[in-house]
Write a protein that binds this DNA or RNA. Structure first.
Lengths: 223, 223
DNA sequence: CTGGATCCCTCACGATACTG
DNA sequence: CAGTATCGTGAGGGATCCAG
């Protein structure tokens, strides 16, 4: 606790003392999608050693970011969930995820895609200003991962699992980022087989406008 | 590079691979205030070993966050500055700093206060909605640290150094956080000697409204 | 003096195995 | 299922040294 401190009286320094250690923000990311048990967290973060996961959860609990709760009988299980203070990180992590998404290209062979990361990707890339007046339910499939996005007039509810009556089901391949980055348009994405649609296909163009990854800013050459 | 990867195809994971390592965001914090030489950075972050600083700067440069530039003659020195992409982190770090500031209490004996951290603290705590219609220049002194805040109708320019003709000079002691957190009001702060003013003292109340640290949310007890 | 590079030590992280 | 125990490795910490 002491040795790891940055030694600066600064809100930002304090923040990264709490959530700046390895894996911490990814744990918060997954808990932002919903409360989870230890094993669920480990499934979503398979590369984290269990002792590190246990250690992080204790630290986050001590900092008031995460709460450990025993489920009532007959579950009698332990779940981890964000405190109200922890949930205040959502806005920050959404913006950080949007910033980092510009660095993404194609999923590497050793890079996994998880339900929680995709839900947060939707929340990160969402642009409310392009969702005005629209009420639509999208169901997204990436391999066997299924999530959904419920858009209602500038508001987004993105979460895990399918939707009762989606207006459009998008089965997306690895190239989906090109569509969201505006490098190809909806028709091209359909033609190239990057997406397969079920439902109102005209909603795909709107989807690509609402969930958008901005390009990297051009590097200004220095004189 | 490989071993440190999180193995997740996720914008947030990518972001913390770039700026999530120890000291990285504090380096970005200081560069957000202005370009700096290696030694200047080290002065602001005295607890960082020089090899780690050099290593971080290389990583950040490689990721397109920082640019290394040689100053023309006769300076002939090296400066580090943020790229445009790096500057896009300002919004994220300001919000993260605001989140972390709720955890602050009193500066510990081994915690230093730096020019750059204070400038970012001003930017973090600024609430534009309380600055409408106001045009004022504040000069802040914490010990021998001098920074300023120029408020003009909802816009803030906060930077290092004094101001030519400040409307109010605030010499602040360690308890200044209590004023910004609303735990005491302007009159109390003056009476208790937490601040000493030179200039239009009535601007202090407005200051405490504009630069505000919200309280920690109350912990909801779980049943 | 700036701008690092090098060395050594320590501890957090990572891998694996094991337990209530 | 929900972790703890053990142990190796490599990144971080701290001091010192060196080139321009």
């Amino acid at each position: 606790m002491k040795a790891r401190a940055y030694g600066q009286f600064c809100g930002l320094a304090r923040a990264i003392e709490v959530v700046g250690e390895r894996w911490a923000v990814l744990i918060v990311r997954d808990l932002l999608v919903g409360p989870k048990r230890f094993t669920d967290l480990h499934r979503g973060l398979p590369k984290i050693p269990t002792n590190v996961l246990a250690s992080r959860l204790k630290q986050l609990e001590g900092a008031g970011v995460v709460r450990r709760r025993l489920l009532p009988r007959p579950e009698s299980s332990v779940i981890y969930e964000l405190t109200e203070y922890g949930m205040e990180l959502e806005d920050v992590l959404i913006r950080l995820g949007r910033w980092g998404a510009k660095l993404l290209d194609v999923p590497g062979p050793d890079e996994i895609i998880t339900v929680d990361s995709m839900v947060m990707a939707l929340r990160s890339t969402f642009r409310a200003e392009y969702a005005r007046g629209l009420h639509a339910g999208y169901e997204l499939h990436f391999g066997d991962i299924v999530i959904h996005a419920l858009v209602s007039d500038g508001k987004l509810e993105a979460s895990a699992g399918p939707l009762p009556a989606p207006d459009l089901i998008i089965e997306a391949g690895p190239g989906i980022k090109d569509l969201m980055a505006g490098e190809i348009d909806a028709n091209e994405a359909i033609e190239k087989g990057i997406v397969q649609l079920t439902g109102d296909a005209s909603l795909l163009t709107r989807f690509a406008q609402m969930f958008r990854i901005d390009p990297m800013p051009a590097e200004t050459p220095h004189s």
